[in-house]
Design a binder for these strands. Structure first.
Lengths: 125, 125
DNA sequence: ACTATTGTATTAGATGCTTAATACATTGAT
DNA sequence: ATCAATGTATTAAGCATCTAATACAATAGT
């Protein structure tokens, strides 16, 4: 997964979302150590301050814990992670339906378009 | 449809998207007159310059035409509108699948979650 | 005890978005 | 010919984000 940050929205927001995904998808498992602010900033090609801001937000959300000099870890609370995953998914589903409805598509059409796109996809089943 | 503009992204971008939707959904039909920059700015609660910028972008996209002193109209080219509608929908579908996959859901799960959410919806079928 | 690594804080500057106020340009309506 | 409504352009200011450079704080490892 590359960073693909764009300038449409605040970078720190995009980083938060990306790390959220990496956590709830298990790429960073519960209790696992996260890279340091400085390292991740270099990897993402952003200023350390920006990465710091993203981490602060993740901590506020309860997904990561912080220990000075030890660094940061993903929370051990798997329930918290699962809950976040379900919420993020629910938001995606609702937003998708909402946007497609606004564009003028009916329920059946939405399902149809979705299935059709999935057929054409290569892999990731 | 209310304006519901947030500060997450540039306002003029959000206005462009909203007007796009209103055009492709037929709320503003082909050839129909659009409100003036000043009027829409007041309605949306933004500065006229901001609304102007959004319109400039819509013109660049080929969705509206401009006539000084007459105002702006939705393009007469229904093909253009239809094409835009399909593109916007395709983007929504692809993005949705992509995001759900990143979260760790498989195709069947995605369909299932979608259908489930639609069942619980009230109306707009 | 010392050092390296980590998180955290501060200050300054650049950039883009938005608002505000104002002016100009075009043209249909009278 | 005049006026009103429209689009368009300009300038200045405020604000948030981001970068940059630097310093400080805490602690695991040696």
């Amino acid at each position: 997964m590359s960073w693909k940050l764009d300038s449409d929205r605040p970078i720190y927001t995009q980083i938060v979302e990306r790390l959220q995904i990496q956590i709830v998808s298990g790429e960073y498992g519960p209790g696992s150590r996260l890279p340091s602010v400085r390292d991740l900033a270099i990897e993402a090609g952003v200023n350390p301050n920006t990465m710091q801001r993203a981490f602060t937000e993740l901590e506020r959300l309860g997904l990561v814990t912080t220990n000075r000099s030890t660094g940061r870890q993903v929370t051990e609370e798997t329930e918290m992670i699962q809950k976040t995953k379900n919420e993020l998914a629910a938001n995606q589903v609702r937003d998708f339906i909402s946007r497609m409805s606004e564009l003028g598509f009916e329920k059946k059409e939405i399902i149809s378009l979705l299935k059709n796109e999935m057929k054409e996809e290569t892999g990731n089943d």
